[in-house]
Design a binder for these strands. Sequence first.
DNA 1: AGTCCACAGGAAGGGCAGGCGA
DNA 2: TCGCCTGCCCTTCCTGTGGACT
Length: 406
Amino acid sequence: MKDIFHNLLESSQSILKNKEVLRPSYVPDILPHREKQIEELAKILVPALKGETPSNVFIYGKTGTGKTAVAKFIGKQLMKKGKELNVVTNFVYINCEIVDTQYRVLQNVANHFIRAWEERIPFTGWPTDEVYSRLVNSIEKRGGVTIIVLDEVDKLKGDEVLYNLSRLNYDLQRARTSIIGISNDLKFTEFLDPRVKSSLGEENIVFPPYSADELCDILGERAKIAFRENALEENVIPLCAAIAAQEHGDARRALDLLRVAAEIAERNGESKLTEKHVRMAENKIELDRVTEIVRTLPVQSKLVLMSAIVGNELYDDLTTGDLYQIYKDLCRLAGVNILTQRRVADLISELDMLGIITARVISKGRYGRTRQIEVFAPTKIKETLEKNEAMPNLRNYKPNLQSKLL
DNA sequence: AGTCCACAGGAAGGGCAGGCGA
DNA sequence: TCGCCTGCCCTTCCTGTGGACT
């Protein structure tokens, strides 16, 4: 019994030597194919090292294009150079998906400057303007230039916090601040208050998606650190890169593929990572994504999805009308309100957008115009749905196929 | 060429919950 | 605590549409 972990540890040393390198949170020392963006951002921020105020920057780019990595990388470099030159530089990174309200953003930035022996601002309770003045004080006390990075800035609730942060410099005497906003939503600034828009959008940097070749280089760099020698079959990295490039050049997805593939290979006790493992990883990631989406769907959407699965089993080509008949039956079985066909049509569209089903508009001529519905990975989805208590027991369901047979 | 089916999908508005300032 | 506002979910009503059939 005592050797259980020993054995597992032994076997899991076969392929990976440092898995952390493959995680999205890891900031590498080299960022291949982002030299231009790094230089651009560095040029904008270099005034900080002379004690001047850098322009605010907005960074755009789809997920996995290296926005966060570049921002963190530059932050690290800036702090290092600041120390060398004896210039006070501060770098605060905030992920707005987690810290999403005005209060919490101000609280987080302020707490960054508060020393261990000083009173920290609590999670809640203080009036927002008091947190703001505390923030101004602490930045002022520290002096120098503070770079505040707001990652996923589009997730912030309201633009008040952006307005307040952008006017920080008016309230500061000796210290200066500059904001870097990061977003994957190109249209984000369109909906901002014009004052915020002009103040924050002083400079823009766009991160284009990586090509398959570029992804190969990125994976190659990480693989050197992550894997033992000869643990990778030659075509593994190009395959991961090609799959990720097909979507939109997402490096995060490429790294996930490589990591999950390695985990699968290790769990199987194999000593070499092959194309087969990448394919298995691709499947696993996709299924995990779908299961997660299905699990968190509202009850009505779950019922529509279940109707689609049942419908696919009963009909060769499932249409909106057929699905709606089944849906009404399932609602009765589950004791749930029946929504109108108009609303169900919208729920079908939503499921289509999530990529769980495909709903193609087709015309059957004289027999009308409708959508043909097909469910992706029905077995796995059904399994997930059946774990939900609110779902009806399908063993009690007797379909009425009359409409189709006539 | 015109008809007609079975919807798609837009517009408007009701009802409700939650947030917020007074 | 109250009234107002906003966003979300949903319904009702409506017009539009591709193509088989007449």
